[in-house]
């Protein structure tokens, strides 16, 4: 069966890729919208504006 190797790699590549895309999107969204992270993000966003270049 000369084609098995390629077909298997292909199946894995395509199948896993799709699963991975979905999992990653969900993971990212959960991280970004996790109730606790809002405050941290606000703090980070404002952090660059204060104390800029002052000793």
């Amino acid at each position: 069966m000369p084609e098995t190797g390629h077909a298997l790699t292909l199946l894995f590549a395509k199948g896993f890729g799709l699963f991975y895309l979905l999992a990653l999107s969900v993971g990212t969204l959960i991280y970004a919208f996790w109730p606790g992270s809002g405050k941290r993000f606000d703090h980070a966003a404002k952090s660059v504006l204060r104390g800029e270049d002052q000793p």
């Binding site: 190797g5 390629h6 292909l10 590549a13 395509k14 896993f16």
Partner: peptide
């Protein structure tokens, strides 16, 4: 992942 999915199958391509 993206790179592997794109490139890896090409190395078994001789079969097809």
């Amino acid at each position: 992942i993206g790179g592997l999915v794109d490139i890896a199958p090409l190395f078994t391509i001789d079969e097809t």
